[in-house]
Amino acid sequence: MLNTERKPITGKRVQLMATCLCDAFYDDVAAATVQVLEYLGVEVVFPEGQTCCGQPAFNGGDWAASRKVVRHTVKTFAGEEPVVVPSGSCAAMMFHGTVLEFENEADLGEVEALGRRTWELGDFLVNGLGVKTWPGRFEATVAFHRSCHSRGTNSSSAASTLLGSVAGLKIVEFGEGEQCCGFGGTFSVSFPNISASMGALKLDHIRAVKPDVLVSGDMSCMMHLGGLAKEEGKPIKTLHLAQVLREALKNGKLL
């Protein structure tokens, strides 16, 4: 089972794990995460030494390489504050994947401790801070993609709670919503045919319900689906949950 038991939230200061994808490609998602948290009066600390959660090597089977990165991450995120990450996938790596690859290591305890205070953004907002409705306005029909690493966690229901409460925002369900988009990290490049076929199927289902925007809590899925759609010559608009929440604030003149 996923180890999703969290330390209760005390204080209003968090460490931000921006994720390597936001660091390299999606700076606006990380910025939106900061703005959303700060709107709620949360002080955001960005440990500058951060790199990656270690998942690429973990999924690729090179656990020795992954542990090296995880040890760096544990050191970088020292302290007691919750760690908030705008990705269900990186969050699951911190509270589940790392525990698996450290099960025979002497420093398992430190790794587990970091996992217990790591939160995916939506989960943190709803279940950590107790935010159940989101102010502002966002006029759009939204298809919400439940990313796979949020299975067994509270992240997808948290995101639906928040999105569903935004004025003007309408969520549309699409076919086979529980199915994977086909990204899968290194899988996307070592199984490019299957990966792209899975993505094409997902895009068909999404396009069938004609959303204005595709939203997810994970940029990795969006990078894959958005990249496929663009390559097909039929681009789709993708946004991260944090960006929608930030835009809602802006539209409501709250930011």
Binding site: A31, V189, S190, P192, G227, L228
Partner: peptide, 19 residues
Amino acid sequence: AWEAKRSLPAWRGGEFRKW
């Protein structure tokens, strides 16, 4: 392998840290 099927988003490395 990535680009055979998918476009790559623009590289914006370090932009968040600068912001």
